[in-house]
Computed example of a mutant assay.
Amino acid sequence: MVAETAQRLAVLLRAGIAPERAWQFVAEVDGGPAESIVARMRSGQRVADSVEQEGEHWRAVAGAWRIAAEVGAPLAESLRAIAGAARDAAEAADDVAIALAEPAMTARLMSWLPAAGLVLGGALGFDILGVVVGTPFGAASVIGGAGMMLLGRWWSARLIRSASRRTDMPGLRAELTAIALSGGASASRASALVEDADPGGDQSTTTRVLELSRVAGVPAAELLRAAAADDRQSARTRGRLAAAQLGSRLLLPLGACTLPAFFLLGVAPMILSVLASTPVVW
């Protein structure tokens, strides 16, 4: 939604429509966040402040708008750059989500295997309830198996969350710095404006690019945009690598928790039921 809105605003601004009017047109057609932003603008808030209050995903648009207005950078081109960055970030997140879907679904299904073994034992006619209630070994087996099953589910969920973790928009700091420089701001002022926007991320890449620009005597804006694109590509690669590694990492909770839980919940109660029903011959 952020990328589409920023792109439409860029087109409208490029066509000569005033910024506030452009927001109104987008709100009338799309509604949703744009409508809330326009409502805040009508109450007297500035555009950037209205956008920033919409939430974390809109901070990039708010920062670009605020910096462009401050230094006099072309607003349409600034929003176009942010739209491209947001689109790249969304595509990277989609790639990671697709890669994670299969191992995550397999892990969730396997986590219910111990409980399925317990139900299967009862369906086959074994006196599972009698063993659980009537013998201390049966009760201990079920309690231990349930604990192992819950531990395996928690462990798997934590691995999946770790693999799917991502930054909101890699390269945003470099993009905002490029916008400030394109409006004629000095490197020090551009850095200060970007710090006020608080885009997050590592500052070292932007610092190195600015130093390269100073030493080589070339404009830094294009170098910064290229660095931002590299950051987004690196984030996409890291996400794919984490998704590829997830399949092997999920074997740890499977072997350490799920399979022992299956034995304790599915196999041990059936064995105890058979032993309890077998007459003892002296």
Rank of each mutant, 00 (worst) to 15 (best):
V218G: 03
A221Q: 14
R161G: 10
L250A: 10
T167M: 10
S182N: 11
L241I: 05
T207L: 14
V218T: 13
R166P: 01
A192R: 13
R165M: 10
T177N: 04
A197N: 03
A229M: 09
Q245W: 11
G217N: 08
A157K: 03
R225Q: 11
G145R: 00
L151Y: 11
A243W: 01
A226G: 06
L224K: 02
T207V: 14
R232L: 07
R249Q: 14
S204V: 11
V142N: 02
G247Y: 04
L159P: 01
D168S: 13
T237S: 13
L250V: 08
R214M: 12
A192S: 15
D202S: 13
D198H: 12
L181V: 07
Q203K: 11
R153I: 00
T167H: 09
A216I: 00
T206C: 08
L181M: 11
Q203Y: 06
A192N: 10
P219V: 05
V194I: 07
G144M: 10
S248K: 14
A221Y: 01
Q233W: 09
L159C: 04
R214F: 09
R240L: 15
G183R: 02
A227N: 00
R153S: 11
I179T: 07
A242V: 05
A242M: 12
E211R: 14
L250R: 04
S182D: 13
L151H: 09
R236K: 15
S204M: 11
G201S: 04
S156V: 02
E195K: 12
A185P: 02
I160T: 08
Q245T: 10
L210R: 02
A192Q: 14
R153W: 10
A185D: 04
A190L: 08
G144N: 05
M149Q: 13
E175A: 12
A227C: 06
G247A: 15
W154R: 14
A226N: 11
T167N: 08
A227Q: 01
R232E: 06
L150M: 14
L150D: 04
I160E: 10
V142G: 04
A190T: 04
M149E: 08
